[in-house]
């Protein structure tokens, strides 16, 4: 659709009173799959926050007289593992770990990525150097890079956070740089330069607020990847160590009992799948809702 028509349509529309973000949320809520994702994430957040109130047994409490109980067992409705620990309790505490690790990794990754993206997008001279470093990081397959970092730092959840956040930086830097480049060309940036605004002011007050849409989408999608990677690393024994109730570690522990107690692996597996799925569909919904080309027909 040509710009002319777009302008005309804007003119005929009555002035919109709603705030931009209210509109966005409204549009996300029209997407049924995204709503489903939001509900799952919401439930997970509730579980993570109120974990101690929702369980009858601690995640570390062993009861060797009641090992490998199946789903629906009395007192343990998701059964128990090979040490007799309550699966529900471990699942709920696992949600806590997944969310915290995901948020921390994505948060750190975003701070680094946004900083690098803004600098390389705005300052042409530094662009070449920063983007080559980013290319270098991109050259490693993600999980390999994370394993390398953990091999250097040692195995622990904190190091998993560091590894995943470093691995999130290049993607975020690229996305931010791209939107900075397009926003930078806008006339209002030139207008701010012509009134003598400093670079810092232009970057943080005028460029960054106009780059938020892709950053929000990236962060949501990245949460899914981060949670999945944490589980993968823990499954490989590089992240959370037993007896931590981390979902990936739980799957690994269940491997040896696949035949007599399959729920030990299946339950955390489903939890990981649902969480990753939820973050992905919410990310998709946000991307559609924030797409500027959709503004016209909504």
């Amino acid at each position: 659709m040509s710009a002319d028509i777009a302008l005309n349509e804007n003119k005929t529309k009555p002035p919109k009173k709603e705030k931009y973000y209210v509109q966005t949320i409204r549009r996300v809520l029209k997407n049924k799959l995204a709503v489903f994702g939001i509900i799952i994430i919401f439930i997970q957040v509730i579980l993570a926050i109120f974990a101690p109130l929702l369980v009858n047994y601690g995640p570390y409490v062993q009861d060797l007289s009641q090992t490998k109980l199946g789903i629906g067992a009395e007192g343990h409705f998701l059964g128990t593992d090979n040490y007799g620990r309550d699966m529900w309790s471990r699942l709920v505490y696992g949600a806590r770990i997944s969310l915290i690790v995901g948020l921390a990794a994505v948060g750190i990754g975003l701070i680094g990525g946004i900083a690098l993206g803004l600098i390389s997008g705005y300052y042409k001279k530094l662009d070449g150097i920063i983007m080559r470093i980013v290319d270098l990081l991109f050259a490693f397959p993600g999980i390999l890079l994370a394993m390398l970092i953990i091999a250097m730092l040692g195995t622990s959840l904190v190091n998993v956070v560091i590894a995943i956040s470093i691995w999130s930086i290049p993607g975020c830097a690229r996305i931010v740089r791209g939107s900075v480049l397009s926003v930078k060309k806008q006339e209002y940036i030139l207008a701010m330069k012509s009134v003598g605004a400093s670079d810092i002011r232009i970057i943080f007050k005028h460029i960054l607020p106009n780059c938020t849409a892709p950053i929000i989408v990236f962060a949501t999608m990245r949460m899914a990847t981060a949670i999945l990677s944490t589980a993968a690393l823990s499954f490989l024994g590089l992240g959370a160590q037993p007896p931590t109730p981390e979902w990936g570690a739980m799957i690994a522990a269940g491997q040896d009992f696949m035949w007599d107690a399959p729920h030990m692996s299946i339950i955390p597996g489903i939890a990981i799948m649902l969480t990753v799925f939820a973050f992905n569909v919410v990310g998709d919904g946000l991307r559609d809702a924030l797409d500027p080309n959709m503004n016209l027909d909504m």
Binding site: Q186, Y188, L190, A191, M192, V195, R201, H206
Partner: peptide, 28 residues
């Protein structure tokens, strides 16, 4: 000072116009 051609592109869409004008006073 300068007045720009495209009135649609020369104002930051995320900034209230009062704030936009105030900002220039903050700078100078």
């Amino acid at each position: 000072q300068m007045i720009f051609q495209d009135p649609y592109a020369s104002l930051n869409p995320r900034q209230r116009i009062g704030d936009a004008l105030e900002e220039i006073l903050i700078i100078h």
